[in-house]
Amino acid sequence: MVLELPTSPAKRNALRARVMPSLKELPPRRPEPPAPDDSAVRWDRIDIDRYEVRANGVTVGFVDVVGAVFVVLSGTRYDRAVEVLQTLDFAAAIGSISPADTD
């Protein structure tokens, strides 16, 4: 068994001083508006922090919202989907799992 010593307040404050400015630069996250009605690629919010992405009515992946980051999972089932991208841009997240030809 390994016991870890608690970090000193000075070390915690130094880490907080380095991290906090970076966190303030991240964009705030609000739910994304639904896809346009005529779009072949659509997304629906299926949980407080998850979107399901469909192309031509078929599920192609999922987008999890983790803080300010969109984590993109490709696959038809969430429990078997594979992470393919992490991004700060929702459009890039959707584009990364959308098929090239959605006609």
Rank of each mutant, 00 (worst) to 15 (best):
M1T: 09
V2D: 13
V2T: 14
V2G: 02
L3G: 14
E4T: 06
S8E: 04
P9Q: 06
A10L: 11
R12W: 09
N13Y: 09
A14P: 07
A14S: 09
L15T: 12
R16G: 04
A17H: 13
A17W: 03
M20T: 14
M20C: 07
P21E: 14
S22I: 08
S22M: 10
S22E: 15
L23Y: 11
L23V: 08
L23P: 05
K24D: 15
E25L: 15
E25N: 14
E25T: 13
L26M: 13
P27G: 02
P27N: 05
P28S: 14
P28K: 15
P28V: 15
P28C: 06
P28Q: 12
R29A: 11
R29Y: 15
P31A: 13
E32N: 09
P33R: 03
P34S: 12
P34V: 06
A35L: 13
D38T: 03
S39K: 04
S39G: 02
S39T: 03
A40L: 03
A40G: 05
V41K: 01
V41A: 02
V41T: 06
R42P: 02
W43H: 13
D44C: 04
D44L: 10
D44V: 08
D44M: 05
R45M: 06
R45G: 02
I46Q: 08
D47P: 03
D47E: 11
D47V: 04
D49E: 14
D49L: 08
R50W: 04
R50Q: 10
Y51A: 01
Y51S: 02
E52G: 01
E52V: 12
R54M: 10
A55Q: 08
A55C: 14
A55F: 10
N56C: 10
N56V: 14
G61K: 01
G61A: 12
G61W: 00
F62C: 04
V63I: 15
V66C: 12
V66F: 04
G67I: 01
V71W: 01
V71F: 00
V71S: 04
V72W: 01
V72Q: 05
V72F: 04
V72L: 13
L73F: 10
L73E: 02
L73P: 04
S74E: 15
S74C: 14
G75F: 12
G75K: 09
T76N: 12
R77D: 15
Y78F: 14
D79N: 12
R80C: 07
A81G: 06
V82Q: 15
V82I: 13
E83Q: 15
E83L: 03
E83A: 11
L85N: 03
Q86G: 05
Q86P: 01
Q86C: 14
T87S: 03
T87M: 09
L88V: 15
D89K: 07
F90E: 00
F90N: 01
F90A: 00
A93K: 00
I94Q: 00
G95N: 12
G95Q: 12
S96C: 15
S98V: 05
D103R: 11
D103G: 11
D103W: 08
